[in-house]
Amino acid sequence: MSVRMLPAGHAALLVECDGLAEVLALHDGLARSAPAGVVEFVPAARTLLVGVDPAVLPLESAESWIRRTAAALPGSAAPASTLAAAADPAAGAADIVTVPVEYGGDDLHETARLLGVSPEALVAHHVNAVWRVAFIGFAPGFGYLVSDDWPFEVPRLEAPRTRVPAGSVALAGAFAGAYPRESPGGWRLVGRTDAVLWDAASDDPALFAPARRVRFAAVRP
């Protein structure tokens, strides 16, 4: 795949890809082959920030490693297959986080109507899809989840809510997510979960950490 290197200071490179599928593939490829001195990866919709300790891994060396890794990955001409599954073929079902959801959020029926399906069918798609956390959005632990099994593009609310309760399971664009804390928001609410989405006291504070695989499971109220 082709990538574009953008400057991001003395201790990071911003790598621009053709799209999200390429970002995810590159993230996986780099995570598997990271040399000493790589400090962090921060994925986003079309870019991956690679943070380094330049005293251990000079930016020039980091750049050549990133270019080499990207060159070995299939280009965007190839089908950008299976965001969730192809991410790491070695990963088994045990690595999939299951999130219990009580479906029936404020927007479930209206969203299903907009998409031309029944609420039951919308829930079935949501439950049957294997999701992958692509990147974190506007709040700590607010993961943007994508899935090849998800055929819908969900319009955001015309007027965002000033207050979305914590635990709300929501849809927007091609993404699924859940609100780790109460906040304003324009995503459509289709259910709620009791899962702990964010725990700052934990060593693994975000349930939806980038690259993690997720399934939703319907539970009764």
Binding site: V39, E40, V42, F135, I136, F138, P140, G141, A209
Partner: peptide, 9 residues
């Protein structure tokens, strides 16, 4: 707290 940017911190 460096190192948590990927989690939104």
């Amino acid at each position: 707290r460096p190192g948590f940017a990927h989690l939104g911190v």
